[in-house]
Design a protein around this nucleic acid. Sequence first.
DNA 1: GCTATAAGTTGCATGGCAAAACTAATCCCA
DNA 2: TGGGATTAGTTTTGCCATGCAACTTATAGC
Lengths: 407, 407
Amino acid sequence: MANLRQASLRHANLALVARTVLAAEAPPSRADVAAATSLTRSTVSRLVDELVTGGVLAEVDSAIGGPGQPGQPGRPSRPGRPGRPATPLTASTGRFAALGLQVGVGQLAARLVGLTGEVLAEQLVPLDLAGSRPGPSLRRLRTLTTRVLASTPPGMTVVGAGLALPGIVDHTEGRLLSAPNLGWEDVTPGAALRGALGDLTLCVGNEADLAAHAFAHPAPGRSSEPQDFVYLSGEVGIGGAVVVDGTVMTGRHGWAGEIGHVCVDPEGPTCRCGSTGCLEQYAGRLAMLAAAGLDASTPPAELARRAHAGDDKARTAVRSAARALGIALAGVVNVLDIPTVVLGGHLAQVGALLAPDVEAMLVRRVLSAHWVTSRVVTAPDDPAPGATGAALLALDRVVADPVAFVS
Amino acid sequence: MANLRQASLRHANLALVARTVLAAEAPPSRADVAAATSLTRSTVSRLVDELVTGGVLAEVDSAIGGPGQPGQPGRPSRPGRPGRPATPLTASTGRFAALGLQVGVGQLAARLVGLTGEVLAEQLVPLDLAGSRPGPSLRRLRTLTTRVLASTPPGMTVVGAGLALPGIVDHTEGRLLSAPNLGWEDVTPGAALRGALGDLTLCVGNEADLAAHAFAHPAPGRSSEPQDFVYLSGEVGIGGAVVVDGTVMTGRHGWAGEIGHVCVDPEGPTCRCGSTGCLEQYAGRLAMLAAAGLDASTPPAELARRAHAGDDKARTAVRSAARALGIALAGVVNVLDIPTVVLGGHLAQVGALLAPDVEAMLVRRVLSAHWVTSRVVTAPDDPAPGATGAALLALDRVVADPVAFVS
DNA sequence: GCTATAAGTTGCATGGCAAAACTAATCCCA
DNA sequence: TGGGATTAGTTTTGCCATGCAACTTATAGC
């Protein structure tokens, strides 16, 4: 932590007020914020005014897009109560947005996300990039980026850009070190996208980490339940992320979350990573489809349909995957005491079939299962949650330090 | 984070100054602190004076034990340089201490630890508590506690007490839920110790967590390398802790770190936890001794001696343990990206034998091994590191919020 | 003994927050 | 229909911690 001068006190309180408003379920009044933060109403008023003129917050029902024109006072939020009606506050739409990009094995995506977490513009292209060359793919992504940025509403500032990649990333250098599923090695996407990004700096991150962030935070400053979970993201292999108290654990170098390569059985099949019996060899998309006797291009939903219908091979494939997931996740839960597992990617599509078996396995293998039972939930269906997460992460900076953007 | 009033600004800066002084390798001057914190010299002077009169900091070479008597100014720390010589600052000895207790399978321990991390008084009783009854054991510990507290130097304040327990702990209630190695279930040690503790509140914690804290922080506010590691603590079974950025990850309920029950082989032997193939079944003390054909009471050092001497069974036992450790730790490293493993307890005594095999296993099974290689190090030999950790944790509160103690 | 240099202290100005008084807008009731 | 009760938001005043700059103290080097 840095030192605290008086200015940073104001910065911190400004951020606190912004966070409080954005985190609230219903639009809170200044008085609500004062009560929640234990600042005084006078202080909150001053800070809120600053954030409103800066375009971070907005008074509900005030004229949208007309900064400086406060408009009519807001509607009473709790009618039937005496007293002056409150002026509800929300995140301001129309002033700040961020760009989220994703290179997946099955698609390219570019999204513009606003402060309320809504997608303002999107370009999504299904595309098989397994074994592709980085150059052409990134040029394609650059086109999408340009198109999305072109649709930025006037007066809106794009505060940052993030790119989700399915592999091991050096986030300090913005470099993709290795993405086995794409067949990419040592790529620096920032250079290829520079033309489209203008002066935006690109933050590169792991797809699972960013998708997990989006799952924990539907909008900047807002938190959804649960705040502690293990996220599994299945595309071809299995990526993962560990979220503690709403924050994605990146680890010493940013490479945490490689749950796909946790050993399930030391005598198991050899993995492309060089180890044996990795989770990915049982619950990866290709592994599951192969075990079910299906072609590699079959959508996972078809596997789920067959298993439901009673297809023996499909059911065996799902059971085997669930067993492997149970063993690997039990280890993670034992080590981290995080009793919620979120299944994303292809695992979400067979989530309903996997969850009971996985939960049973966790009950058996988790030491603290006597006191707390683990839950397995599925992530919402989204082809590119990493793009959203990347944008949200960029927008978080506005909430964390409004002064830098309100200027 | 709570809100920030002006007073908390002073609190925060007071804590910052205290931390900066305690964290420094060599005693820093006020000017050094100002440079390190980017506060001004005048502000640092004011804060330091307050901490000195409060007994948190001391000027080196001032009369010890004579508060209010600043004594002669300190020696020049960098002779040969022009200018007024600096007054070096350190943690004050003699004013604050904390009590650390530990119930181990092999001993009871009570320690009084000062702000510089030194053990001021100690009572250590080797004792086989496996299968013991809690009541008599805790009464014994109470006697040790009374004795240690009786040796508190005059004028010194004991700011807190902590108790390390080898099991699953509910730290909010101060209750030991289950300690299989002791055979204890649902014990509240605070009640049994109340008489000896006076008005001290007892913080109960897991032994491995507290030992890991002591390893990361040799003294309150001070950090040692590494700051990110996995700690393994072997007594009868295997406990563990995950330390990220100097902080022990406790998990959602405080039960993180149960690495002993990570699955190494789903077809392996049944563990007393009900699962199969847990790490503890290969690298626990009893498991290793049994595999080596030795009696359960044999000290682990004897196992190490035999393996060194070429005893086949001993070598096989060590190799098998190393393999299991490698598999389990590779999973942890993959998930957490923490490339350092610290072996404590009985594992430290055979650490030199284990380390090469474990490291080799990690190279093979960790996905990011191409870029960073994991290290395996051994913890210093201490029968009760948890007691020290518990005391240090209590002392940390003095550094984190000096105002509460300086009053 | 004089100058240069660096450490530590003192007095004043600044700026952010708290407290309390004040204004604004609504409900309720007579 | 108007006045009291109640709650939201604003203005004024005072406090307090920090920054700044000038000053004092203590040493080295000449």
